[in-house]
């Protein structure tokens, strides 16, 4: 995933590359995702969240809809 200066720049990039515009994620949401995903990555217990957990995480952060649905 990429960082853009603004929503307008996302729109322009999608048109240039003929790609669909996907839901946008604020930097605050992105930070929360990073903390949930990676805060214990250097520890013995760390693991990637499973599909159900991922769904709960996305929902908690307001990332909802088919784009965020995870294969189970």
């Amino acid at each position: 995933m990429l960082l853009f200066r603004s929503e307008e720049h996302v729109e322009r990039w999608c048109k240039t590359h003929n790609l669909p515009r996907r839901p946008l994620v604020s930097l605050e949401q992105l930070w929360q995702l990073a903390v949930i995903w990676y805060a214990n990555r250097l520890t013995e217990e760390s693991r990637r969240p499973g599909p159900d957990e991922m769904g709960e995480i996305f929902d908690k952060l307001g990332l909802r809809g088919t784009f965020w649905q995870v294969r189970r």
Partner: peptide, 23 residues
């Protein structure tokens, strides 16, 4: 540029776009 200080991101203009659905 982005920055994180004391466990908090420094407010910065910008937005993230995921090109591929989570599944």
């Amino acid at each position: 540029t982005l920055a994180v200080r004391a466990g908090t991101p420094v407010p910065t203009p910008g937005i993230a776009h995921f090109a591929v659905p989570a599944s």
